[in-house]
Structures are given as structure tokens and as C-alpha cells.
Amino acid sequence: MRKFLIAAMLALATPALAAEHVVTISGSEYSPTRITAKVGDTVRFVNEDAVDHAVFIPTLGHAIDLGSTKSGASTVLPLRRAGRIEVECVQHGHMGLLIVVTQ
């Protein structure tokens, strides 16, 4: 019981730690192609391809263009708002990733 109380108090006192979700870009695809996350989390896109890719979100209320991510480089997307966010690559129209962000 005491253990439970301590755990409950810790849970209340400690803000949930923000998570970093890693999405790799390889073979001109995002992997995975769907992730779920919380507001405050971040998504790191790691470009493992030899060519440049991009992180572009046209979704209303979330729209953002992070520009190009060079071969071997990575880009971080902060998730500031709940919603269903669609990520696209500027250079490659077929690439897609859905991020479901909850409070």
C-alpha cells in the first residue's frame, strides 16, 4: 500500500517524459509509416538514403515545411498539438507517414 502511494505521488509529481520517436528514411520510404505520439514528443527523421528527402506537412492547423534532409542527416519535428498529421516528402510524391498525436 505504501509502495502504491509513493508510486502514485511520483506519477503526480513527475511530468510524463517526452519521447523521441525515430523514423528512418530508406529506399525512398518512411519507416514506420504510422506512429502514435503525445503532445510534447518529438519525431526524429533519419535519412539513410544517398539522396535528399524532405519533411513537409500540408495538414491544416499543423502545416510545416522543415526543408530538405540531406543524405546521412536528420531532422527533428516537435509535436506541439494533437491531431492526425500527414507527413509528405517534397521531392517524392509517393512517400507518406501518418502521425496520430494525442494529449
Binding site: P58, L60, A63, I64, D65, L66, G67
Partner: peptide, 15 residues
Amino acid sequence: YNQVERPDRTPNQIR
């Protein structure tokens, strides 16, 4: 119809 943030621009821009 849309506003696209450009955090990659210095200073930051909104499209």
C-alpha cells in the same frame, strides 16, 4: 486556405 510554418528559415517565416 493554409499557413505553413518554415522553422528552417532564419529568421523563421510563415508561408
